[in-house]
Design a binder for these strands. Structure first.
Length: 321
DNA sequence: AAAAGTACCTGCGCGC
DNA sequence: TGCGCGCAGGTACTTT
């Protein structure tokens, strides 16, 4: 369940079950899901077994669960990323789902015991134990529900920018970054070191809403256009979150295995050939960055500056004729 | 040093 | 029916 709204649905679903719980046991079914765990600290199982979880935090598409540690220990957390196909499923103890890569057995002092199954078809996701380091800006590290988390972030997440729904999202830095980038605006929206949480679906949806072609050079946007785009990004993320995220199939589900409803609200992503909701022109799909980009060729005109040289010169010839 | 390419994986649906 | 191909919501590392 990859982008910000889907990851937040998972975080919110896990929080009541996992915060305060002790991780009594760990089952590793596929070592590849620990790719991002660095063994220098110790083994994943040794570091995690017996630990108590103190919070459920998210920044962009990364999740982490700070662990209670002794005063003489470096603070650490269980870090998770869902990749393209990861799921965190809350189950009764002893339950094993198809393609479970890692299973966690939880004991909670107030609730009943539970099982968290990390399920991942493609294994681009991962779990790891990582040390927590101070945030660069000194503010709480991400979103953790009602209570802001400590100003500590897993070292492997430290380079990820705040997401646009974060109260400490640095807008001036975002506009500054846009003004320096000579690449297409969609590349910048997908660059998690500039702004986090946006993936292919919400990039296409935000650009459709802002009427911008994905190859518009980021630096060429006016400040006004950039501000409108950021506004549309926030609107689409919030709306998707309110609808429980986007699901096309059983692959993208919340902690109980249920789907979100935002796929009914999509205007561009996956709408190839369907009429644009604004003007009726059929939505087109083209390959960009080795993935699909969906857009309305009438509302989102490709700017001249972004045309390839051969194409631009052909267009000039055509203009003269 | 920004920008582009490549690697990491499994499984589904499609056309032949 | 079987088989190869393209496609899928992401990140990080390497190369240019």
């Amino acid at each position: 369940m990859p982008e910000l709204p889907e990851v937040e649905v998972v975080r919110a679903g896990l929080q009541p079950a996992i915060v305060g719980a002790r991780i009594a046991d760990i089952d590793i079914y596929d070592e590849r899901s620990l790719r991002r765990h660095h063994r220098a600290l110790g083994t994943f199982v040794d570091l995690l077994r017996g630990s108590r979880v103190t919070a459920a935090v998210r920044r962009g598409k990364f999740l982490w669960f700070p662990l209670e540690t002794g005063a003489d220990e470096r603070p650490r957390a269980l870090v998770g990323h869902l990749g393209m196909s990861g799921q965190m499923l809350l189950r009764e103890p002893g339950t094993l789902d198809e393609r479970t890569r890692i299973g966690l057995s939880l004991e909670h002092p107030e609730h009943r015991d539970l099982r968290v199954n990390f399920v991942d078809q493609r294994i681009f996701g991962s779990l790891a134990i990582d040390t927590l380091v101070p945030t660069r800006d000194g503010f709480p590290s991400g979103f953790a529900g009602d209570i802001p988390p400590a100003a500590l972030i897993p070292s492997q997440v430290a380079h990820i920018a705040r997401d646009p729904l974060d109260p400490h999202f640095d807008e001036p830095a975002f506009f500054e970054a846009l003004s320096r980038k000579k690449v297409g605006i969609k590349r910048v929206l997908l660059d998690q070191t500039v702004v986090s949480g946006i993936g292919n679906i919400y990039a296409d949806e935000s650009l459709w809403a802002a009427r911008l072609h994905f190859e518009r050079q980021a630096a060429a946007l006016t400040r006004r256009q950039a501000a409108v785009l950021l506004d549309e990004v926030r609107t689409v993320l919030q709306k998707a979150l309110a609808e429980g995220g986007t699901s096309f199939d059983a692959q993208y589900v919340n902690v109980n295995g249920a789907s979100g409803y935002f796929s009914h609200s999509l205007n561009a992503y996956g709408q190839t050939g369907k009429p644009c909701a604004r003007c009726g022109t059929p939505i087109e799909r083209v390959s960009f960055m080795n993935r699909g980009s969906h857009f309305c060729p009438f509302c989102q005109k490709r700017p001249r500056a972004a045309r390839k040289p051969a194409e631009a010169s052909a267009a000039r010839t055509a203009d003269k004729a």
